[in-house]
Design a protein around this nucleic acid. Structure first.
Lengths: 239, 239
DNA sequence: CGAGTTCTTGACAGTGATCAAGCGACGTGG
DNA sequence: CCACGTCGCTTGATCACTGTCAAGAACTCG
């Protein structure tokens, strides 16, 4: 086994607990490495996959940051999510054997390529992996339900507050600060995700800053008063 | 085998092609019947499952019409979908072993109860079923991507036009008219799904009616000019 | 038949979009 | 290392779409 092959193995990956199931016994753990065929580097701005492209694999993000988006026939674009290390993308392609959205790297990234045929084959052999795949897909469905709530019921500042809290929480789960972050996306991309124009996003940032809830300097954001931020999108909690 | 048991069997169900995979050979087809444990009747207005309830089963709709919804802590409700015969609900529960949304019958309904343990077990045995389960979940993810586009980028009339076309298309696939339908949901429920208030939905209906695009009488809707309706939410197509 | 629900329509208000201008950061090349 | 150009961000002024409030009509169901 070459050093490179050791690095590539799920069994040695420090992100395993994020993207792979737990509960494997040491013997079977090596079999798990068979899901990942190769790794692939994606430079900032490049597509990992595009709408209409043939679906062959799921991708586990090792490093970097992605956005996924769909576009309507008349050219309007909707960002459907932002994904970071340990998260799985490409699930949209399963239903029609073609991708129906675009995945674009927001910074230089590296992904593990998991041919879906491998995933399905090993899933049949290992119920714990099967369950894990089901959970990942279910989690995505539930996440999108939450976005629908956001887009359908919340006002601009509520949306941004929920967005920032979600982002910092996911970063914190990966060992980063729970109060500071550097955004990897533009105001326009945030706006697209939240169903707002970039000017509205910018104004909401300024408003939070004026109110002393956050500190903003371009992409850098520091959450000064997390409780106030939570109250923005859940006003009834203040009693 | 009792007559009731014959009726219950997937292998004899005329909806099978909608909710079950094709390509089973006759011998294995009988095994497929094992996914369905029982059937369950749900009266109009009753919950099939509720937020927080333990997840045990997926449900295939035999007859009737459902809505699913999520609610925020401060009581706001968002309808996340409308489901009809042949569609599968309950996928939201897999990730946390609890349902995170509510499923409510909009008319008297009957569902096939498919314990998820059965689904997973048979999926391991039959790759064609495994693939089918994956496709159903992927389809739901893609559908929600479309709803995000709707909520994030479209104006009121575009949303309603897209909604009506989607609904009539699904009904048509089930053998109903491709121009007429009777809505099973209120204006408020449509509005919740589309991120609009009921008055806005009502006005959009009236507008379409004035323009001769549809004929509306309460819940009854007839599409007079499907092309005009398509142009509403894709204005660039008119050249 | 009557009570309650659902739908329609009108008047007005408010949130966020649009249009516009200027600023600031960053990167590239001289 | 600095100048300049580009891209992203901020802020202001105005507008338009949709929300809110209200009243009445139509329908449903017991």
């Amino acid at each position: 086994m070459t050093p490179e092959a050791i690095k590539i193995a799920c069994s040695n990956c420090n992100l395993r607990e994020l993207c792979m199931p737990v509960g494997f016994n040491p013997g079977d753990l090596q079999r798990l490495d068979e899901v990942v065929a190769t790794r692939r580097r994606v430079k900032q701005g490049e597509h990992l996959f595009s709408n209409g492209e043939e679906f062959t694999s799921l991708y586990a993000i090792r490093t970097g940051f992605f956005k996924t988006s769909v576009s309507s026939e008349d050219g309007r674009e909707q960002v459907t999510g932002f994904q970071m290390a340990g998260e799985i993308i490409g699930l949209d392609g399963i239903v029609s054997d073609r991708h129906s959205c675009n995945a674009i790297a927001l910074e230089d990234a590296e992904v593990c390529v998991m041919p879906f045929a491998n995933v399905e084959e090993l899933s049949r052999e290992f119920p714990v992996l099967q369950r894990h795949v089901h959970k990942i897909m279910s989690r995505e469905i539930v996440r999108e339900n939450g976005v629908m709530m956001l887009l359908g019921n919340m006002r601009a500042e509520e949306r941004l507050a929920a967005f920032l809290l979600n982002l910092v929480q996911r970063l914190h789960a990966r060992g980063f600060s729970q109060s500071e972050m550097v955004l990897r996306m533009t105001r326009e991309e945030i706006g697209s995700y939240l169903g707002l124009k970039l000017e509205t996003v910018s104004r909401a940032f300024s408003r939070f800053s004026e109110d002393g809830i956050i500190e903003v300097k371009q992409r850098y954001v520091r959450i000064l008063d997390p409780d106030a931020l939570k109250k923005v999108f859940n006003p009834d909690t203040c009693f």
